[in-house]
């Protein structure tokens, strides 16, 4: 029994260590954010990179998710009520509040998050991060601040795209496969949904951006041991981001519901 708790305790030590390191990293980012000029060129470059890396996959995934949602709800509803009811409402709520933000975040974690971890990790093992310190700047200022801003700007924008494409996917299937007239579909969406539903997903994606950026930076900065280490850091980063996105998704949603953004 005692052994069990000892092992459990040991399991938590790395977690506390990581939390400590992340806190210091974020603190240093905040401190330098106020101490140095923003490098807009770099922010734009990074945003374009994150956006273009993920845009096509995000659109594709969300379009098909919208389609399959419409298909499933349509046929379930048909078997229960003999006609497809409220397809637009169900697709709209699911996409805008849950699926678009989460799926987009997962794509960005896998694409841009991994790329950033690999980039920073490579810089770490080739001493380029040390070189930043000796050339009058530092990783927080030169690398992390522009990338934080880029993630926090780009992910919500991608989520808006995802909302649009998901709902369009649902629209195509309800029109073609289920024979729901287009006015009915859009009516189902706009009578029951309002800006607060949209904000629920949109604001969540800002948190997800923060999670992805923080995890990828933390894993990149902690890279050890050459090319192999970079590979390990990259996979670690993607897995950790995905788990944290899904776990925090619940808590952030619950918090939003609590404050009335539903």
């Amino acid at each position: 029994m005692r052994y069990f708790f000892q092992q459990l305790g040991h399991g938590f030590i790395p977690l506390f260590k990581a939390t400590g390191k992340v806190t210091l990293m974020v603190k240093s980012v905040i401190v330098w954010l106020f101490k140095s000029k923003l490098e807009f060129e770099e922010i734009i470059k990074q945003s374009v990179r994150i956006g273009s890396d993920s845009l096509i996959v995000v659109c594709l995934i969300n379009f098909f998710t919208g389609m399959v949602l419409a298909l499933q709800t349509g046929y379930s509803s048909k078997s229960l009520f003999n006609e497809p009811l409220y397809i637009g409402t169900i697709v709209g709520f699911s996409i805008v509040k849950e699926l678009a933000p989460v799926l987009t975040a997962i794509v960005v974690a896998g694409r841009a998050g991994a790329a950033v971890t690999a980039e920073i990790g490579t810089m770490k093992v080739t001493e380029q991060l040390d070189a930043l310190h000796t050339l009058g700047t530092n990783p927080a200022r030169y690398l992390l601040i522009p990338r934080y801003i880029a993630f926090i700007v780009t992910l919500p924008l991608l989520t808006v795209f995802a909302d649009f494409l998901g709902i369009s996917g649902g629209f195509v299937v309800s029109l073609v496969k289920l024979g729901v007239p287009s006015t009915v579909y859009w009516n189902d969406i706009f009578t029951f949904m309002d800006i607060s539903n949209f904000m629920h997903g949109f604001l969540k994606s800002i948190f997800f951006a923060f999670i992805i950026a923080t995890v990828s930076f933390h894993k990149g900065l902690g890279t050890k041991g050459g090319a192999e280490g970079v590979g390990k850091a990259t996979t670690d980063s993607v897995v950790t981001s995905m788990v944290l996105i899904l776990v925090f998704d619940y808590f952030i949603s619950a918090a939003f519901v609590f404050v009335g953004i539903i």
Partner: peptide, 13 residues
């Protein structure tokens, strides 16, 4: 301080 790193540590980007 100026610092020349053993392996250069040039920024490859």
């Amino acid at each position: 301080f100026g610092y020349l790193f053993q392996d250069g540590a040039l920024f490859d980007s």
